[in-house]
Simulated scan of single mutants.
Amino acid sequence: MIAELDRSVMLEPRALRDQSIPKELLEYANECHLYLIGHRPMTVVDPNSLSVDDNLMTARFISYEQSEDAIVECTWTQPGISGAVRVESDWPHNVLRIMDASDSQIARGNASFFLAYAMASAESDVQRLPVDAQFLDLMVDYIGKAYGTEGNRGAIARLQSHSTLQRILSELPRDMESWIILLNSDSQTLFTSIVPSGQKGDSADQEDDLHLQRALAGPLEEEMIVDFLEGCLIKYFQPPYNVQLKKTFPQASAKPLAELYTRDLNAVGFELDTRHLSVRLRSATVASSFAHNAMYSLHSPTDRKNMFDFVDDIEVLRARRR
């Protein structure tokens, strides 16, 4: 089974403290039960470079990434603004504010947030990826989940009193900034290949039929999907602040995964694409990319030799879906 992480929201930790998340975004984010915490070099702007003409903004961005050429000047169309507005930034110039003619704030965000908008409109990856590498790529620090009784606890509620998040923020160097990506899966796909292990009507054939019935016994509960996705993501990225699941996932004795083994599934996996967030993810063991995927077998190779088997190559699975 592959679960697509097709619901995602990116927030700065400040938004959790001052409750500045827009209502429509909050409703969407509250349905997310997984979260990823990461960091990247702080981005600042040259305040003398700031200008806005209707909805066309210009700024020179400077990254704290240790490189002499980590400077880029961009002009881009900023959604949600028009008319007589101005843009300003106070020391240390890592936050931009857009003010209207009456000095009311109509938009606020980290400098890297505005740079991400600019890069999203780049004509090609050749143009944007060098900038992403210096400014926007996110190093994954921690992956967690939040799932309360009847699924009524989302990631935002969990993060508002999260000791690991507070630890990450307290240990983060001053020239870095932290970001949170909320995740959830709204679609899952079960792939099968059938290799009969017996003759029609004999005991092996009957066991094959039972096996198939168990595997196709309806959709998995949302909590089970959240559980295995958390394990997959931790196993894949190997985040430094995670302790559990990095080496042990998947494990037949783990209670949260019991239904997967009851269904006699062979493997679980994930697909994650963050291009719409304008951020590539990376870790100490995973190279920067917008797209990440992996599959993990629930059984040792010697345990699985019957008719209902999952294909291990995720590229083959993706080709079948087209």
Results as ranks from 00 to 15, higher is better:
119 M>C: 14
134 Q>W: 05
259 E>P: 06
191 F>E: 02
80 G>V: 10
301 P>D: 12
5 L>Q: 00
39 H>Y: 07
225 I>D: 06
8 S>T: 10
71 I>V: 15
315 E>Y: 14
298 L>P: 02
249 F>Y: 02
203 S>E: 12
257 L>G: 00
282 R>L: 08
320 R>F: 13
233 L>R: 02
291 A>I: 14
215 A>R: 15
10 M>D: 03
230 E>H: 06
205 D>K: 04
73 E>N: 07
212 L>V: 08
248 T>R: 04
249 F>V: 02
266 N>V: 11
19 Q>S: 13
250 P>Q: 07
200 K>H: 13
125 D>W: 10
282 R>Q: 09
165 L>C: 08
253 S>V: 01
211 H>A: 05
312 D>C: 12
89 S>H: 09
279 V>S: 07
205 D>Q: 10
86 R>I: 09
89 S>N: 07
319 A>E: 13
298 L>E: 04
30 N>L: 11
52 V>H: 04
64 Y>W: 10
191 F>W: 12
128 R>F: 03
60 R>E: 12
83 G>K: 06
58 T>H: 06
38 G>D: 02
233 L>S: 03
23 K>N: 13
169 L>K: 11
51 S>Q: 10
192 T>M: 12
18 D>W: 07
288 S>N: 06
266 N>I: 09
45 V>H: 00
282 R>T: 06
232 C>H: 00
209 D>N: 10
43 T>V: 14
117 Y>L: 13
211 H>W: 11
65 E>G: 06
243 V>D: 14
102 S>Q: 14
116 A>H: 00
164 T>C: 09
97 R>H: 12
68 E>R: 14
43 T>W: 02
297 S>Q: 10
293 N>G: 14
15 A>I: 05
238 Q>T: 06
260 L>K: 03
143 I>M: 05
282 R>N: 11
302 T>C: 05
88 E>G: 07
97 R>E: 15
169 L>D: 05
295 M>A: 14
78 Q>R: 10
214 R>Y: 12
278 S>T: 12
290 F>M: 01
174 R>Q: 13
100 D>M: 04
249 F>I: 01
241 Y>Q: 07
311 V>G: 07
101 A>H: 12
89 S>T: 07
192 T>C: 12
308 F>T: 07
165 L>N: 02
221 E>I: 00
182 L>T: 04
82 S>I: 01
238 Q>I: 06
244 Q>P: 01
296 Y>E: 02
43 T>P: 02
308 F>C: 12
52 V>W: 05
307 M>E: 13
145 K>W: 00
182 L>A: 11
170 S>E: 11
87 V>Q: 02
105 Q>L: 13
112 S>M: 01
71 I>P: 04
158 R>D: 03
159 L>D: 08
46 D>I: 01
184 N>H: 15
306 N>L: 14
255 K>A: 13
190 L>V: 10
269 G>E: 05
296 Y>S: 10
156 I>W: 00
152 N>R: 14
124 S>C: 05
87 V>F: 05
228 F>G: 02
193 S>F: 11
291 A>W: 12
20 S>C: 08
227 D>Y: 10
61 F>P: 05
